[in-house]
Each structure stands twice: as structure tokens, then as C-alpha cells.
Simulated assay, not measured.
Amino acid sequence: MELPPPGTDLHRLMTRFPRAGQVQWIGLRPARDVPMREVGSAQASAGGGLAGDRYNGGSGKRGVTLIQAEHLPAIAALAGHEEIVPATLRRNLVVSGIALIALKGNRFRIGDVLLEGTVACDPCSRMEVALGAGGYNALRGMGGLCARILEGGELRLGDAVEWVGA
């Protein structure tokens, strides 16, 4: 959603965050249909993706995929699981403490890396296998966010996630 004009109440509401978020988990997808590899840090390339990830060098709008840590228990409950490990959902970053949907269409920093939220990261048909029957629908609305990498650098566990602007 595009930000309303500065000085309006809605602009003020949409640009105020209670606190910075934090990176809780980082994973790389080395190739299609192979398990994700959990890492402590990853190198992000401007206009590309993460080194070692299958999407590196591909479409800039999907340079990094993020999912909300707070949604993992809800997805698990809807899919009939006690818990879900992040690698199951095949997103690069699990982030807590900041509403990812509020970053869509906006710029934000994770450590030294500047990103721009592009589109919702909708579930794919693989979730039916990963989560069981109905897994696709269990993830709908909570699939996270895709982001374009505007300035590269290293992403690390524990890095702050902070809104920068539109």
C-alpha cells in the first residue's frame, strides 16, 4: 500500500512502529526440492539475492523472503502440528517484533542491508507436502513478504529490522 501524504493522521500511523524487529533464523535454499540450509549469516547482493540461495541472481523483487516468527505457532495450529521448524516454510529469514506486512512497499534495514518490501510471499503447492493436506490454506495470509535488495551486505542472526521509509 502506498503511504498517504505526510502530515496526515494515516501517514503518522503507518510510519510508527513500537520497536525494531529482529532476525531469528536464516536459511538458504541451495536448489529446488532440496532441504534448506540453516546459517548464522548470509551475504546479500544488491539487485540479486543471497549467496548460496537458488534465487540469487534472479528476479530482484524476490531477492529475500521473510516470514513473521509470531505466525509460526498459528500456522502450526492451523496445519494440525505442535510446531513448525522454519526450514519447512522455505523462507530465508524469520523475523520477530515487527509487522512484516507493514513493510510492503516500504524500505527497511536489516543490519547494513537496505531492502524494499515488494509483494506478499504467498504459499506454493509444496506446502501440501510439507505441512500435509490443507497446508497451503494454513499458510495463506501468513506466508510473509518478498523483498528487493537495494544495498547489499551481510545479514546476521540478531540483526535489527527497522523501517526506513517509502
Rank of each mutant, 00 (worst) to 15 (best):
5 P>W: 06
14 M>S: 00
66 L>H: 10
38 E>W: 01
117 G>I: 04
115 L>P: 12
80 G>I: 07
56 N>V: 05
67 I>V: 15
119 V>D: 11
134 G>A: 05
136 Y>N: 02
114 L>K: 11
59 S>G: 13
127 M>P: 01
33 D>Y: 12
132 G>M: 07
62 R>F: 03
108 F>P: 08
157 L>A: 05
84 I>Q: 07
47 G>A: 08
7 G>L: 05
142 M>E: 05
14 M>P: 00
60 G>Q: 09
89 L>F: 04
81 H>Y: 06
16 R>A: 10
40 G>D: 14
9 D>G: 00
110 I>Q: 04
92 N>Y: 03
60 G>P: 09
43 Q>V: 14
152 G>W: 10
87 A>S: 15
155 L>K: 10
118 T>K: 13
99 A>V: 11
108 F>S: 05
146 C>W: 00
120 A>S: 11
32 R>Y: 12
94 V>T: 12
128 E>H: 10
74 A>G: 07
79 A>H: 08
83 E>A: 15
117 G>C: 01
31 A>Y: 08
141 G>K: 12
43 Q>F: 08
133 A>D: 05
158 G>F: 03
80 G>T: 10
13 L>T: 05
56 N>G: 00
52 G>C: 01
153 G>D: 03
52 G>V: 07
34 V>A: 12
125 S>D: 09
53 D>C: 01
68 Q>E: 15
129 V>P: 00
41 S>I: 00
23 V>I: 15
48 G>A: 09
156 R>D: 03
115 L>W: 06
132 G>E: 06
69 A>L: 10
128 E>F: 02
92 N>T: 02
39 V>S: 06
145 L>P: 04
123 P>R: 11
133 A>F: 05
20 A>V: 00
135 G>R: 12
35 P>G: 02
145 L>C: 06
5 P>T: 06
67 I>L: 15
43 Q>P: 01
20 A>P: 01
35 P>S: 03
96 S>G: 14
15 T>I: 08
98 I>S: 02
98 I>A: 04
68 Q>C: 13
119 V>I: 15
16 R>N: 10
160 A>D: 14
147 A>G: 07
5 P>H: 08
163 W>G: 01
42 A>T: 10
82 E>A: 15
116 E>Q: 15
123 P>Y: 03
139 L>A: 12
91 R>M: 04
6 P>T: 05
45 S>V: 15
4 P>H: 01
115 L>G: 12
86 P>W: 05
126 R>S: 11
121 C>Y: 08
16 R>V: 04
128 E>V: 09
113 V>H: 06
126 R>W: 04
7 G>C: 02
92 N>P: 11
35 P>A: 01
141 G>I: 06
95 V>K: 03
